[in-house]
Amino acid sequence: MRTQTLKLLGLERLIVVKFSKEQKCRFRSLWNKALIVKVYGRLVGFSFLHARLFSLWKPIGKINCVDLGEEFFLVCFSVKEDCEAVLRNGPWFIGENFLSIRPWEPNFHPSEANISLVAVWVRLNELPIEYYDVKALQIIRNVIGRVLRIDTHTENESWGRFTCLCIQIDIEKPLVMAVLIGRKEQPVTKKGIQKLCFSCGRIGHW
């Protein structure tokens, strides 16, 4: 770690802390099994959320919650498979309230966070087999949203009738329902989002 002193307006002094790339990787590796969550439309307490998530997700390992402020919570998993299962099997609701979930990200500041970003699994049913390619999926993802995960079967080239992508979307914007690949319209199916309003393409009306 190196420090540097800067003068501001000739009076105040600002200490700049710099970490090496290796140090950052080590610090951040501790949080690769963590999710940032927020309950939409409802204030919840730390103890209530912890108990409700444990009952809802039924993890095989332990989970710990950290209150980040601004109604955001960090949920840390002791078992990576539990974290992956939460992303894969969502979206989730506490009562009628949508549970916003995103993987932990470096330099997350709750007061500056975009609260409408959530992780959702989508299916590309009957995608032509030539597009079952990582680079092709990366191009498609730029249209649909930021890809957070690719289904394991797709990564291993164990092809089926559809491919699954976990993408980050902004629920305050209309959702993409289809993409045009060549001359063929390719439907984009959101997994488990029965509570979407298909009239406006948005999640809920809370």
Rank of each mutant, 00 (worst) to 15 (best):
H50C: 14
S199A: 08
Q186W: 13
E126W: 10
R52D: 07
Q168N: 09
F72A: 15
C83D: 05
L8T: 01
V39K: 07
N97P: 09
N114I: 05
K184W: 08
K62H: 08
K184M: 09
G69C: 08
F162R: 02
C25V: 14
D151C: 06
L124V: 06
V179Q: 02
T189S: 15
F108S: 03
G45L: 04
L49I: 10
G10I: 09
V75K: 01
Y132W: 13
G45C: 10
K58F: 02
R141E: 14
R88H: 13
A119K: 00
S111N: 09
K21P: 13
R42M: 12
K33G: 07
V143P: 00
A51M: 08
P103Q: 04
Q23W: 04
T152D: 11
L14Q: 09
G160C: 04
L35K: 05
K190I: 09
K80G: 00
P59T: 11
E157F: 07
K21L: 07
W57Q: 13
F77E: 01
R26P: 00
C83W: 11
N107R: 15
A136W: 09
G45P: 12
I169S: 03
D82W: 05
Q194V: 10
G201E: 06
W121F: 06
I167S: 01
K33I: 01
I63K: 01
L124C: 05
F198M: 12
P91H: 03
E185N: 11
I171R: 01
Q4G: 09
E81K: 03
P187M: 07
V122F: 05
L87M: 11
V17P: 07
L117S: 01
P128W: 04
V176K: 08
I15Y: 08
S78R: 02
H205L: 09
I203E: 00
K38R: 15
R102Q: 12
A113E: 05
I169M: 08
I181V: 14
I129W: 10
K33F: 02
P110D: 11
L6V: 13
R88S: 14
V176C: 13
G201L: 08
G10T: 03
T189P: 02
I94A: 05
L137H: 01
C25K: 04
A119V: 15
A85G: 03
I167A: 08
I203G: 00
L11K: 15
C65Q: 13
R13I: 15
F73I: 14
E12P: 06
P59R: 03
L165G: 00
I140E: 06
P103M: 05
N64I: 12
Y131K: 12
L11G: 00
H50E: 09
K62E: 00
K18C: 06
I171M: 09
V79Q: 14
K38L: 11
G45S: 13
L14H: 07
I15D: 09
V147Q: 05
V134Q: 04
I115Q: 01
H50Y: 00
L6C: 06
N156C: 14
G10M: 09
D151Y: 07
V118M: 03
F54W: 12
D170F: 01
F46L: 14
T3F: 14
W104R: 06
S47A: 11
I60N: 04
V120A: 10
D133C: 06
A119F: 08
I169L: 08
L148T: 02
A119Y: 02
P174N: 02
V37T: 12
Q4I: 07
L9M: 10
I63T: 03
I144S: 03
F162A: 06
F108G: 05
D170I: 05
N107S: 14
K21C: 01
E157W: 00
N142K: 13
